[in-house]
Design a protein around this nucleic acid. Structure first.
Lengths: 146, 146
DNA sequence: AGTGAAAGCTCCAGCGG
DNA sequence: CCGCTGGAGCTTTCACT
């Protein structure tokens, strides 16, 4: 377990709101020098608290207008890694969560249209070990911004 | 619908892998000048394709070791906004997805421990209009990094 | 841990093709 | 739409507290 103090949390919160905020902008807000802020963020990266920086894209503007979650049920003998690897092969799959209980996995997908969704689901079902799926179509989503 | 060409897609892909990559680093990779890259990214922001930049944090290192999805079922008369607003009030809630069919919403949460999870679920159940919940505990997760 | 300053690099706005 | 250029601002490293 790594030591993360209040100033680190402040920095993480600022970067969460804007991942490109500059050190020189954050420094006065936390009452430290620019160099100190840089060292803290370098350390957060080295200790694995920060795993990376990324851009947030509105997928609907790229023609991937439909989101869905697919619950996968698998045969009892299927290893976890197998489930993930299989699902992950499809580029439409955004994330895979393995689950305790029923279902065995929750797969988040993003597709162009209903036909495309059908293809992706068919692909998941064809993967060996899958005994059943249930699809939850996303109508709207709200992700915490803070 | 906004025009997004192949170079834009390349830039988005690079920023997805590292949201702090500099314009001058990306420019030679796409064969454009620094100023042209900046103009494209500014435009992607203005047109709403890019909604922001953020930092990726390993929540387990911050003591929020347990993730879960809670499926919410609500009374038929409940408006969508009501569901979202209610769930969203709890800071443990990371994201809310409204769903077509059954369940009515999928709520992603992140908590310290099982007791904490119990509290959050109780909170969601107490919110008016909720007729039932089903909790999916996350054992592992893989998010596309590319 | 923290500061401050210098060198080098990046950004950005304006002008022109 | 693109590139070029100069001034401003940011990052990074260093020696030091």
């Amino acid at each position: 377990m790594t030591q993360v103090d209040d100033i680190d949390r402040q920095l993480l919160s600022m970067l969460h709101a804007d991942g490109r905020r500059t050190f020189s902008e954050m420094a006065p807000e936390v009452g430290l020098s620019v160099a100190a802020v840089k060292r803290r963020i370098d350390r957060l990266r080295e200790t694995g608290v920060i795993t990376g920086f990324t851009v947030q894209v509105d997928q609907t503007k790229l023609g991937l207008g439909i989101g869905a979650f697919v619950e996968l049920s698998c045969t009892g003998s299927t290893p976890v890694g197998e489930i993930v690897r299989t699902a992950y092969r499809a580029p439409e799959v955004q994330a895979v969560f393995t689950i305790a209980g029923d279902p065995d996995a929750l797969v988040q997908v993003r597709v162009r249209d209903i036909e495309h969704l059908q293809q992706v689901i068919d692909g998941l079902r064809r993967a060996g070990h899958v005994t059943g799926t249930k699809t939850l179509m996303v109508l709207g989503s709200w992700t915490r911004e803070s």
